[in-house]
Design a protein around this nucleic acid. Structure first.
Lengths: 185, 185
DNA sequence: AGATTCTATGTCAATGGTGACATAGGTAAT
DNA sequence: ATTACCTATGTCACCATTGACATAGAATCT
């Protein structure tokens, strides 16, 4: 089973969703650490149904087209639980900007400062998004997000990594800008 | 031009290398933020040569097979310089372990602690590797790694991000373990 | 009236990346 | 002797992922 399958099961473990709804979630909460397009999601949901990990029923809607709402089966839940309990290889970083900093000595200092500041700006934006979601979890999942068996707890710690990562990235960018400004004189 | 091309040019901007040598570098220094197998590297070097960004000459060796040593051309260097000077989209995180923490509420606390500790261990190992390289740069590139136009400077700041990232990841793992241990009682 | 956007589901060609297969001479260990 | 590994370069089938194409009804804007 590939990782995408587990990304889908992870969402369905919390709530029933249609493919379209999952597509939208894969751009925001889960999409922060695993992305997928609808062209991957729809066939994968069909495959998970063949394997017996999910079922679906068609739900009619007013004014918008019908949707297929998927539900996790007991087998799917067990599959997910086992996967979560197994250790993972540490992820390989794949960051085009870090590749650029490796060749930053070739750029003239003004251009170098500009690209680093641009990158910092993007990570500041992302941090703001995460902090908005954090507020949301702390409010909606109050009294639950501290219990390890609660989905809010899992959302919370995952989000904390996102926040911590962005803060670290921003600090690093600022350090580079400072050094470039100081040393360019 | 794809990112892999620039990864190869980034290395050749510093020194001439054969495909085999690049293959080994793509598992260590550059490989920390952009990896590639030799099955990608060899055809890509050929393609870069067709485009006029690199040239090669065959170097005979004693006891081991001949090698093709690639050299960056002026056009290749200019292409790289331009790419470095352009802003990049912030990288999308793609971390299987973060996907697991999102479903960590399904695992029993003992299994949860085990997988987080395993992940921390891997990042501690990676941090040690980075710190060894840091020592190396500070020694070999002393008096150079503080100048923005030096390749040592670029290596240094890129490495600092690696170190900072690993420290942050380890701290986060430890925070989760603490919470799991405290709340499991 | 026409254009655009949103919901909703799907397919498919092309690209990027992995893992296996292939070759070949030298070294080192059992 | 045989196995295994290292240098060195290459190809190829497969899998994952992307981007474009496709359809279709309703709402909204110009």
């Amino acid at each position: 089973m590939k990782t995408l399958s587990y990304a889908l099961l992870s969402l369905l473990a919390r709530q029933d969703f249609s493919g379209y709804e999952i597509k939208q979630l894969m751009q925001a909460p889960i999409g922060f650490f695993w992305r997928a397009r609808h062209s991957q999601i729809y066939p994968e949901l069909a495959r998970l149904e063949e394997l017996g990990y999910v079922t679906h029923e068609v739900v009619e809607q007013q004014n918008v087209p019908d949707k297929k709402v998927y539900t996790l089966t007991a087998a799917g839940r067990e599959q997910l639980r086992q996967w979560v309990s197994e250790p993972s290889e540490a992820a390989v970083i794949r960051d085009e900007f870090l590749l650029k900093t490796f060749s930053l000595w070739l750029a003239d200092p003004a251009a170098a400062i500009a690209v680093v500041e641009d990158q910092a700006r993007q990570h500041v934006e992302q941090l703001r998004v995460y902090e908005g979601i954090k507020q949301h979890i702390e409010t909606e999942g109050a009294g639950e997000f501290m219990q390890p068996s609660s989905a809010y707890f899992a959302s919370y710690i995952t989000l904390m990594q996102g926040i911590s990562y962005e803060q670290q990235y921003i600090n690093w960018c600022r350090m580079i800008v400072e050094q470039l400004e100081a040393l360019a004189d």
